[in-house]
Amino acid sequence: MYVDPRVAHGRAKFDLNRSPRMFAEERRWEISDVITQCLDNFAGPRNRRNLMRLLERQVAPKLARLGLEPYVGPVGHLEGLFLNFSTMSADHGLREFQLQLTVPDLVLRSFASCTIKPHAVARCLQRNGVISLAEIERETSAAFVFARTIRPLALVEHWKQVGVPTTNGLFVGEMTDSDDICMNTYIRPGDNDRPSRWSGFAGLFSDMPRWNADQIRQGSDLLQWMVNHIVALQKSAPFVERFPFLTEPYRSIDDPLDATWAAARASAREDSASS
């Protein structure tokens, strides 16, 4: 189904403001409050054993009741509580945050590791011929999972722009100054006759399985597949040798629909200013 860019932008803005399926920005502070209150109310000795028990028996269950899936245990050389959660807004788009509370120092860190900009959300709607965020949830959720694997590769190879593949397409964007992934747009190389520098990149992931909703929610199957796939690809050549443009600053490539998209973005900004 063809979706007009102006319709896609309008629907993206509407869903990013109103969809109940994702956390609002304020939820980030609610999560921090739960953790802070549990720590403030804890009166026992703050040794490693007691703190890990506190996280497992009090903090994690309360976060689970918020619909989250916290993990308590070791991650690399760190130990404590770890959590990924998403927020959404018409200003920032979709953002995945990583939160970690390490033991025994009780250092709480929360940072956005990946962002899907509103324009990328609108592009994903338009490219997939749908008009609601729920219909591209598998694409956006899978992108967040895969970005966790792409990010360390991008840092090691000093990428400045980045592609995050999904089953149906490719989110394209850049590495930020804080070394996070920002997905600015979404493409489906091969949908038209125009050549794309990203066609070869997307082609490396063309045999990606079609993940079901449970696999995407849990993430482990996706992460394992991507890690194994990248390791296999790296044996023949690093990504930066295959695609030298990855180390160049990100730039938007002209598109036949650019004028329409520009009009759609301008209209969205005018609506925001008048509301």
Score class of each variant (00 low, 15 high):
residue 1 M to W: 10
residue 10 G to S: 06
residue 18 R to P: 00
residue 19 S to V: 00
residue 20 P to Y: 01
residue 25 E to T: 14
residue 26 E to I: 05
residue 31 I to L: 01
residue 34 V to D: 05
residue 35 I to M: 09
residue 35 I to S: 03
residue 38 C to D: 10
residue 41 N to H: 08
residue 42 F to I: 02
residue 56 E to K: 12
residue 57 R to P: 00
residue 58 Q to D: 09
residue 68 L to C: 04
residue 80 G to M: 09
residue 80 G to V: 10
residue 87 T to D: 01
residue 87 T to L: 13
residue 91 D to F: 04
residue 92 H to A: 12
residue 92 H to V: 05
residue 93 G to T: 00
residue 94 L to W: 00
residue 94 L to M: 12
residue 95 R to Q: 15
residue 96 E to R: 15
residue 98 Q to H: 13
residue 101 L to A: 01
residue 103 V to G: 01
residue 105 D to H: 04
residue 106 L to P: 04
residue 109 R to M: 10
residue 114 C to N: 06
residue 117 K to H: 14
residue 121 V to I: 15
residue 123 R to D: 13
residue 129 G to C: 10
residue 129 G to N: 08
residue 130 V to N: 11
residue 131 I to F: 07
residue 138 R to M: 14
residue 139 E to T: 02
residue 143 A to I: 06
residue 147 A to D: 01
residue 151 R to E: 08
residue 151 R to T: 06
residue 156 V to D: 11
residue 158 H to T: 11
residue 159 W to Y: 08
residue 159 W to I: 01
residue 160 K to Y: 08
residue 170 L to A: 08
residue 170 L to C: 08
residue 172 V to L: 14
residue 172 V to R: 07
residue 176 T to N: 09
residue 184 N to E: 14
residue 191 D to E: 14
residue 197 R to S: 11
residue 198 W to T: 07
residue 203 G to T: 03
residue 206 S to E: 13
residue 207 D to W: 02
residue 212 N to H: 15
residue 212 N to C: 13
residue 217 R to N: 12
residue 218 Q to R: 15
residue 218 Q to F: 14
residue 223 L to K: 15
residue 227 V to F: 05
residue 229 H to T: 15
residue 237 A to G: 03
residue 237 A to N: 06
residue 239 F to R: 03
residue 240 V to I: 15
residue 245 F to H: 09
residue 252 S to M: 09
residue 252 S to N: 07
residue 256 P to T: 04
residue 256 P to H: 12
residue 256 P to C: 10
residue 257 L to Q: 14
residue 262 A to E: 14
residue 265 R to A: 13
residue 275 S to I: 06
